[in-house]
Design a binder for these strands. Structure first.
Lengths: 194, 194
DNA sequence: TTGCAAGCGGGGCGACCGTTCCGTATCGTA
DNA sequence: TACGATACGGAACGGTCGCCCCGCTTGCAA
């Protein structure tokens, strides 16, 4: 499963530097404009040639994937801390809104989550699974504590996440982000008639 | 404001037929694949040449707009009937879910609503306004009847609509559509703590 | 039936974009 | 310092797509 032991040859200093620059720039640009930006644009902003981008990442999709997986794993990594620092309901909602904010500020991530053009769940199932697991744990705890209505599945929550990203993205520019809508969603998740 | 009286010259029979075929086909294709489909594809499926499409619609955007406005006005036209036939809360939610279903089954419409690439609110402000007004009336009545929490604006509802379209579209293929999430949203809209 | 304006099809142009290639510059080592 | 390996840049290629053009067809009126 793991990469061949010999396969990692140390990169030359300039190569390592360029790779990092490309990755950073790609993140910025994909976040701002989504998967649609031309590779040439990323190369230009990173101060390298297009050929350099392709030497480090075999296709545009591979570069996009590297960027998205990084953001996704960052999110996943924050879940245990949230679980430890808050009571179950708060932890779940904190993770939900953190994810929504991340996606609303990152068009590429939002597209990847929603499966628009590039689909995480298809291209990187393991990462998608890690994210679902993290969310699933938080959800289960919150449900056990009565902070989120029973019956909701991780899949429901993922769909809701995609929806909330779309909402907040639609609102980008307006002050306050979701505003009242945040309460609407939260109250709905808690359950209606008790 | 209205078109010059002389400007409407009757089309030849074949031209009228072709125009209709293009419009129907464009609706099907944009609904299935979004704004991204090539014009040639629409022309091919309609059984005409690309030149014919461009004689009837000056640009791809104009064709898209014609299709989207048609669907939007259909939706708007259904609002008064809903208002008359149901009590305020039901009418509002019926319109909301009808709009969501429409957008979930029509990628082009969903894109236009969310402002992805092509934005109704920019390209056809009057149509957007008609839609907002229809939704606004329903919302106001529902709020007056206590079926929807106070404080929500038409803009909130439009954002929610965009979000729900994204949710349901994310779920397309799965049986039951939104399922429990429908109740989540409805309960949230009604208001949490009473 | 005939003449012509209206309409048609589809090849072609120009712009854009992902990807490749290769002559040149740079790094790291001995 | 000198040399080979590594990496670089950006021109160029192939494919796609919006849109235009023009020789041919077709509907309609006389």
């Amino acid at each position: 499963m793991s990469a061949n032991l010999e396969s990692v040859k140390p990169l030359r200093a300039d190569a390592r530097r360029n790779r990092a620059r490309v990755l950073d720039t790609a993140h910025e640009v994909f976040a701002a404009e989504g998967f649609g930006v031309p590779i040439d644009e990323i190369a230009r902003r990173a101060g390298v040639g297009a050929g350099t981008v392709y030497r480090h990442f075999p296709t545009k999709e591979a570069l996009f994937e590297a960027v998205v997986l990084d953001r996704l794993d960052r999110l996943v990594a924050s879940a245990p801390d949230l679980a430890a620092a808050h009571e179950p309901g708060e932890a779940f909602f904190a993770f939900l809104w953190a994810s929504v904010d991340e996606g609303a500020g990152d068009k590429g991530l939002a597209e990847a989550m929603a499966g628009a053009g590039y689909d995480i769940a298809v291209l990187a199932p393991e990462a998608e699974q890690r994210f679902r697991n993290a969310f699933g744990d938080l959800l289960t705890r919150a449900q056990a504590a009565g902070a989120v209505r029973a019956g909701l599945t991780v899949d429901d929550v993922k769909a809701l996440l995609v929806g909330c990203m779309a909402m907040q993205r639609y609102r980008s520019g307006e002050a306050g982000g979701l505003g009242l809508l945040r309460e609407v969603v939260q109250d709905g998740l808690r359950g209606g008639r008790n």
